[in-house]
């Protein structure tokens, strides 16, 4: 009977690989064809924004959704990546590819800096510490205009890639690569360890897992992804301003992840596309957008706490 179960598992695993391959081919073709069918630069621009937000949301999801670390400053890694590119371009005239790589490295270093306290601080205390860190960076960005450009930020950054279509391709494949890499990683032994930490950190330790090590590793991967997203955004927008550290940005990332589905990796991408496109229609209400975001979070928590992905899974089961 066990052999039958094992054989069934193997068949299911093979089926899963096939399914993943079909998804990869489908999305690769979709990304190639979409700009041709769409033929609308504004829509492509929104899709690029959605891709940038999706990357940051994925990194936040990895931390909160899989390890249970409540980081209230996803903007820190993103903003640091963006300012890194800004500084390197303004002061060092570095090649854009080099700038992007260093932005990822800065995300890594900052995530280590913020990840280490997470080993001692728990829950709300760590969340408050990250929020404070975000505020510090925001103040520095505003308070040192000679270096950071103050409120205006650093402007005149050259593009990494020219042309909206090519930016769409680049950002889309960046998202696809991150999703596939993380999905694969989370399906391995490493992923099971991460999930167990989210479920019960004390029990994970009793099961022989060095929870501190895995929390720091997850934090580091998340930091690199968000740093890369920040670096890329600086090249795409050709500038960086202190708003990248704002609470509003952090709030958007959390809303995107909650809406799409926490702990799913693909959920943040769906949430990002949905909310970024919706957001474009909310510009007329200005600051009240935050109210709408809050409303979305309350709605999702009340009616589908597992987000869109969870709701779809529930529908499938029924």
């Amino acid at each position: 009977m066990e052999k039958h179960t094992l054989a069934k598992n193997e068949i299911m695993a093979t089926g899963s690989i096939l399914l993943v391959l079909i998804y990869v081919v489908f999305f690769t073709l979709f990304i190639i064809i979409f700009p041709i069918i769409c033929n609308n630069k504004f829509l492509l621009h929104i899709a690029i924004l959605a891709n940038i937000f999706a990357l940051v949301a994925i990194s936040w999801d990895l931390l909160f959704g899989f390890v249970g670390i409540l980081n209230l400053a996803p903007a820190v890694f993103y903003g640091a990546g963006a300012y890194t590119v800004g500084f390197l371009t303004k002061y060092c005239h570095i090649h854009p590819i080099g700038g992007l790589i260093i932005a990822g490295c800065v995300g890594l270093l900052l995530s280590l800096l913020l990840g280490l306290p997470s080993l001692r601080l728990r829950g709300a205390y760590y969340a408050m510490a990250t929020l404070a860190f975000s505020a510090v960076l925001n103040t520095l960005a505003l308070g040192m205009p000679n270096i950071t450009g103050g409120e205006e930020g650093i402007i005149g950054i050259p593009s990494l890639i020219s042309g909206t279509e090519w930016n769409f391709y680049f950002s889309s494949y960046l998202v696809l690569t991150c999703v596939l890499a993380l999905k694969y990683m989370l399906s391995t032994k490493y992923g099971k360890k991460l999930t167990s930490i989210r479920e019960d950190e004390i029990l994970s330790q009793a099961a022989g897992i060095d929870t501190s090590k895995y929390k720091v590793i997850a934090s580091t991967i998340g930091g690199v992804i968000a740093g890369l997203a920040g670096g890329y955004s600086c090249y795409y927008f050709n500038n960086v301003a202190p708003e990248v550290f704002s609470i509003a940005f952090t709030f958007s990332i959390i809303t995107i992840t909650v809406t799409g589905g926490i702990g799913t990796i693909i959920g943040p991408v769906i949430g990002s596309y949905l909310l970024t496109f919706a957001n474009e229609n909310l510009y007329i209400i200005g600051q009240y957008r935050l109210l709408v975001y809050s409303g979305i979070i309350i709605f999702v928590i009340l009616f589908s706490p597992t987000g869109i992905i969870g709701a779809v899974k529930k529908l499938k089961r029924n």
Binding site: T188, K189, K193, A207, I209
Partner: peptide, 15 residues
């Protein structure tokens, strides 16, 4: 499975 992982030295991505 989670309980088995720490005692298994087959590498990060092998089952």
């Amino acid at each position: 499975y989670v309980g088995l992982l720490p005692s298994n030295k087959s590498g990060l991505f092998k089952n």
